[in-house]
Design a binder for these strands. Sequence first.
DNA 1: AAGTCACTCAACCGCAGGACG
DNA 2: GCGTCCTGCGGTTGAGTGACT
Length: 329
Amino acid sequence: MGRPPCCDKSNVKKGLWTAEEDAKILAYVAIHGVGNWSLIPKKAGLNRCGKSCRLRWTNYLRPDLKHDSFSPQEEELIIQCHRIIGSRWSSIARQLPGRTDNDVKNHWNTKLKKRLMKMGIDPVTHKPVSQVLSEFRNISGHGNSSETFVRNFKTEPSNNSIVTQTNSAWEMIRNTTSHHESYYNSPMIFTNPTSPEFQTTPFHFSSNSNNLLNGTTSSCSSTSSSASITQPNQGAQAPVPTFCWSDFLLSDPVLPLNSQTQGVGSSATSNLTFAQNENFNSQAESSSQKTAYKASGTSHSASSFVDEILDKDQEMLSQFPQLLNDFDY
DNA sequence: AAGTCACTCAACCGCAGGACG
DNA sequence: GCGTCCTGCGGTTGAGTGACT
């Protein structure tokens, strides 16, 4: 069952494109324009899948594409965008004229991610690794491994080893925290662009990883120490996970800054403007949906985490009713 | 010189959503 | 409402290439 293939894959050519094939695409598009890609291979005399033709055009042949290397400004913008919206490469690419989502994605995976890790910055949360591990320890109670890691990290003189250990730490976390998967798969969760440090300290590559580890430049203040959710049946041995509902809120880059910062205590402005132009429909679940869930008889204890969120959701909606008007979630 | 490894990036894959009949 | 087609998207793969042993 499932979706039928877009074309007869046994009869279409795959792999790298030749100059002749490129010329056929260019000639066809010059006359007929783009669109209806499924017909283009036949009309242009190409033995390729239409999807492949479209990809070749959008990622390589488009006349407005840049083919030179990324500038430091572009790299910094990618990092800041990734910090806010995560791996939505098409949205990020739209902020970089002449770059495709594939370009941005490849550049991130091959260069920027490694560069951040080398600096001791977690590429998912954009926080210092030591802090991520500390938060991980607070949540999971796996204190020893993170402390050992940070200790080794500090004393390791080799950059390569630092990268290796950073990677291995991440593997350790990923492999042991399936129930915390959303933490690592959702870069929005612990990335708060409304926080004072985000507003006032644009990211620079000159950051010193040692300072980060020593805490001297680690301006990200963890909120995980404020325990508003109590777990009455916690055992005495296991460390109590300490977090509050706001730790799990998605920060919304689309909201007007002054709305977001109410109650946060910051009035600084972000140097990013792209978020205001983007439609982040997939970011957040509809508040009305959530309300519906609550009203549909789903049973939670009064102290459950979900109820905490739903209650807070209602509270926010009452404070910012324009939320539902502005976005079609 | 030959083999191995690491890296880059073009291309592929599968899924999701919108448009349309 | 349903099925089909088309397009967009993000994750992944693998060929090509240079560095290293």
